[in-house]
């Protein structure tokens, strides 16, 4: 990576958020792990992440440079935006996993974009129930209540599966971090779990919306 010139003391610095000589923010592009001063590990302690974010934010925020030159204020704006994006991406294990894949030149393959086979039947059933609930808007009350209960229980089921998938994801993260030469199977597995979570999240959101809509009527 190229060096960055400090907008305050004009020295050339290796890319990082701050100028080590004068403490001014630097306008640089960094990967999210480096920005937060973390090594590229998939397991992260969320409390530690928040502390890092707050400490760095306090030093970088544009409010700290309100009386400085435009170039310094701009660097602070850019550095703060980068820091926030880094924090938000790494805080959520799923977006962290996807970002980590991206950093390693990997992304969800075409077959990950299809409905995971183990979910296909369930997703199909739930879509049916959702359609019935929509159509029953003008139906009898007991009928609607019955369908609502079905959707609510489907929602519960999806939430449980999501929790399980997240646990599985953490297991996968830990195995990655522990291995020096990771088994290629780990990568296949990681992609499969991330894809499954993406589908489960969408499904959970659809079910939730349907319940909200129903309850509003």
């Amino acid at each position: 990576m190229t060096q960055a010139q400090c907008p305050s003391c004009a020295r050339l610095q290796a890319p990082r958020l701050f100028c080590p000589d004068c403490g001014a923010p630097l306008a640089v592009e960094l990967d999210y792990f480096t920005a937060l001063g973390l090594s590229r590990r998939l397991t992260l302690d969320s409390g530690q992440l928040e502390t890092l974010y707050h400490d760095l934010g306090r030093r970088l925020h544009p409010d700290r440079f309100a009386n400085r030159r435009a170039a310094i204020r701009n660097a602070s704006l850019n550095a703060t935006a980068l820091l926030t994006r880094a924090f938000r991406t790494l805080r959520d294990p799923v977006s962290r996993g996807l970002y980590w894949l991206e950093l390693h030149g990997e992304k969800l393959a075409a077959d990950n974009k299809r409905v995971p086979p183990e979910l296909a039947e369930m997703i199909f059933e739930m879509q049916e129930t959702l359609a019935q609930l929509r159509d029953a808007a003008s139906g009898s009350k007991p009928e609607r209540e019955n369908l609502r209960a079905q959707v609510a229980s489907a929602h519960q089921r999806v939430e449980t599966m999501l929790q399980d998938a997240l646990t599985e994801l953490h297991g996968n993260f830990e195995r990655w971090d522990a291995s020096v030469n990771p088994n290629p199977d780990l990568l296949v597995q990681l992609k499969a779990i991330l894809s499954r979570i993406a589908y489960l999240r969408t499904l959970a959101r659809d079910l939730e919306r349907a319940l909200e809509l129903h309850d509003l009527r």
């Binding site: 934010g57 306090r58 409010d63 700290r64």
Partner: peptide, 16 residues
């Protein structure tokens, strides 16, 4: 108070 933050007079407070 926020004006104080911009003047560097409200200690370590920061608004996100």
């Amino acid at each position: 108070v926020q004006a104080g933050v911009l003047m560097g007079k409200s200690g370590d407070m920061l608004l996100l």
